[in-house]
Design a protein around this nucleic acid. Structure first.
Length: 654
RNA sequence: GCGCCCGUAGCUCAGUUGGAUAGAGCGUCUGGCUACGAACCAGAAGGUCGCAUGUUCGAAUCAUGCCGGGCGCACCA
């Protein structure tokens, strides 16, 4: 509702400025510093002052004069040195909300692909992976809430070095056969170490072994070779490992309510020769060339001018095809990016991998035709790649590849949704019993490292959060049955975790700290959940007392609405609650899920304040009580919607 | 060496793209529970927005230069 009003005023003033002054101006709308200034503030007059050579105050007065009466607006005032402050017609605004205006998002044209998670399937997921997945998933929810058609892709590098290293560990270090590895994946005896945890340790051990025995790197090369040829026991083992761990990653992410549509895999990109098609395109359009001298002699390279800035002195080109004829990661990524836009002229085959309990299928790529018809994947008009900021340079090369091929529009719509890493605070390392080198101990934080086995595993963290939440639930509701307690604890724990990962803006390094992540008070997910639960409880209590919710539309006339909203506190609270749409649009435009999280917190704060101040059920005045009940219901709905955009559930009780 | 990011309250972070008196949470201190259950609320203290020039009606925000920290710049992914 709020953003509809906002937009109306924006277009009204754009027209006004054009008619009155003959100028096209971008109308900026702000929230006034103080609520006493009204609901919206327009600094247009300042913008125009220079061009028109007039005082801002005079321009503002002119505009207010020319504007006259506007629908939904009670008054326009010139304030300060030339601000135009807008006050809404409160009765009309309330009536509009009651009528449910402005709830349907306009459907957007085209499909948006969001690629996130992308964990190497060779070990358990850690907190860094969680940040990626939660950011990606939340952004997907935000886009969908705005009416966009979104496809979620999770790229699986099942043929890479990381998987190979775990295979090296099993085969060369532990002399295990594929059958023995399969037994580890589905262990007979309960209580055995889960497979992704086991691989976590093995991967760290293999990495250390390379360090101590550099000659062992030949094992890696041999393994990669066999994986690429796709036959032999090592290749078989690689498939076993990767498939098993992909399943575990899906389960881990599902705990956080994160789902996918399709898993494109590196193995199919190889087998279906996506690269061969991309290579032909790149050669045809002269985007890459065969280097004939220097250190890159014999390689196909992309010239640095394609992806570096003008003034960049670094002249190094980027190798796309190695001198031995194999393609680099970036090359494969260009092919993949082309496919996402439907520009490659090839497609995967697909088969359903699993079905979520809500009936939604996750599909995975296949290299041969499959019996079940699959949805149309790819062919996006816009692509977001959720990848950490350290890969900016490579993402630039991929986009430069599109541009060099003449796909400027698609290059423009290839968005690196970058974010900073999750590191470990020194205190967190101490909690984990990790010994730090003297150099590391002096740093503000320590980088997570899969190779060193240094990090907080996603499932461990979730378990810890659930345990902590369960303690709280059990002490507050000792009478409730353990199954229900557990369910509530899980929702609280996951809410806390998602919120914790979202409250930081994308380019802030999170120095992970158990104490902060485990907090359920203050600016946290549970705080917001608690507000939603309390709103719901008022409505439930009403029913317990044998009453039913009034028919608000029948009982609250526009005049009654205006009367009730004369109360400044009620008005401010209602305004805040109705800003969800506006907050969502701004957050999507800024590409910042953190903004949505912040709005959720503010909304919860407003409600907590309202809850404290107005005793809804004890209110003696009939009209006022009806109004307060309506506000409560409205809050409950807004809180629930906002939380669902953040992927956070509203528990049955708290 | 080159490129990107960061520096805001004791701590952790926001700051709506250049606007009105710089905001939250945590921590500290003071006060508030008889079920609309306090995972909450009210209040207080706490700031040279790293430093310096500049741009203009107006700068935490833009430009330049320093200082301090982080991350990239492979025929690894």
């Amino acid at each position: 509702m709020f953003h509809i009003q906002e937009k109306q005023i924006q277009t009204a003033f754009r027209d006004l400025v054009r008619i009155r002054f003959g100028v096209e101006a971008e109308i900026v709308i702000e929230q006034p510093k103080q609520s006493s200034f009204g609901e919206l503030a327009l600094p247009v007059a300042f913008q125009l002052a220079k061009a028109l050579k007039q005082a801002p105050k005079k321009i503002a007065a002119d505009l207010v004069e020319a504007a006259g009466a506007m629908p939904g607006v009670a008054s326009l005032e010139v304030a300060g040195n030339g601000y135009i402050n807008v006050r809404f017609d409160r009765g009309a605004y309330g009536a509009g909300l009651l009528a449910g205006e402005g709830e349907q998002p306009a459907a957007a044209a085209g499909k948006t692909v969001v690629e996130h998670t992308n964990i190497n399937p060779n070990k358990a997921a850690h907190i860094g992976h969680l940040r990626n997945a939660v950011l990606g998933d939340t952004f997907v929810r935000m886009l969908r809430a705005l009416g966009h058609q979104v496809e979620v892709q999770n790229y699986i590098d099942n043929t890479g070095v990381q998987v190979a290293d775990v295979v090296v560990g099993f085969h060369f270090l532990e002399q295990k056969t594929p059958a023995e590895v399969a037994a580890l994946i589905a262990p007979e005896e309960p209580g055995s170490l889960r497979f992704d945890y086991l691989c976590w340790d093995l991967y760290a051990r293999t990495s250390q072994y390379y360090k101590d025995h550099p000659e062992a790197l030949a094992w890696r090369a041999a393994t990669l070779h066999e994986i690429e040829a796709n036959h032999g026991p090592l290749a078989e083992m690689a498939h076993l490992v990767a498939d098993a761990i992909v399943n575990l990653h899906l389960a881990t992410m599902l705990r956080l309510n994160i789902q996918y549509d399709v898993l494109p895999r590196e193995s199919e990109i190889l087998h279906l020769q996506f690269w061969a098609s991309a290579f032909e395109l790149l050669k045809d359009r002269k985007a890459i060339y065969l280097e004939e001298e220097g250190k890159n002699k014999g390689c196909w390279v992309m010239p640095s001018s394609a992806f570096r800035g003008e003034g960049d002195a670094n002249e190094d080109s980027k190798v796309i095809v190695r001198s031995n004829g194999t393609v680099t990661y970036v090359g494969k990524d260009i092919a993949y990016q082309l496919w996402k836009f439907g520009l490659l002229g090839k497609d995967f085959y697909y088969h359903p991998l699993t079905r979520y309990t809500d009936g939604h299928d996750v599909w995975v790529s296949a290299d041969t035709p499959q019996p079940r018809p699959a949805p149309a994947f790819g062919k996006a008009t816009r692509v977001y790649n959720v990848i950490d900021t350290r890969q900016s340079y490579l993402q630039d090369v991929v986009v430069a590849g599109l541009r060099a091929l003449g796909f400027d529009a698609q290059a423009e719509q290839s968005i690196h949704f970058s974010y900073e890493m999750v590191a470990l605070s020194p205190r967190c390392c101490a909690d984990l019993g990790i010994e730090l080198s003297e150099e590391d101990a002096r740093r503000p934080y320590v980088e997570v490292s899969g190779r060193k086995g240094l990090g907080v595993k996603a499932d461990d963290l979730m378990d810890k959060l659930i345990e902590s939440a369960l303690g709280e639930v059990a002490s507050r509701h000792p009478e409730d049955n353990p199954v229900a307690q557990q369910a509530v604890a899980v929702e609280i724990a996951m809410g806390a975790l998602r919120y914790f990962l979202l409250k930081f803006t994308r380019n802030t390094v999170i120095a992970f700290d158990f104490q902060e992540a485990l907090s359920f008070e203050g600016e946290t997910g549970p705080y917001v959940q608690y507000a939603a639960v309390r709103a719901g409880r008022i409505l439930n209590k009403l029913e317990e007392r044998g009453e039913t919710l009034p028919d608000f539309r029948a009982e609250l006339s526009r005049e009654a609405m205006a009367r009730q909203l004369e109360n400044e506190d009620c008005w401010q609270v209602l305004l805040a609650a109705s800003r969800a749409g506006s907050a969502l649009e701004r957050a999507v435009t800024a590409g910042e899920p953190a903004h949505m999280a912040r709005y959720a917190f503010q909304l919860a704060q407003e409600f907590s304040n309202f809850y404290q101040r107005f005793k809804v059920l004890d209110e003696p005045d009939r009209e006022r009580r009806t109004f307060l009940l309506w506000m409560t219901e409205f809050f409950a709905l807004q809180l629930k919607r906002t939380l669902s955009i953040l992927g956070i559930a509203v528990p049955a009780y708290m």
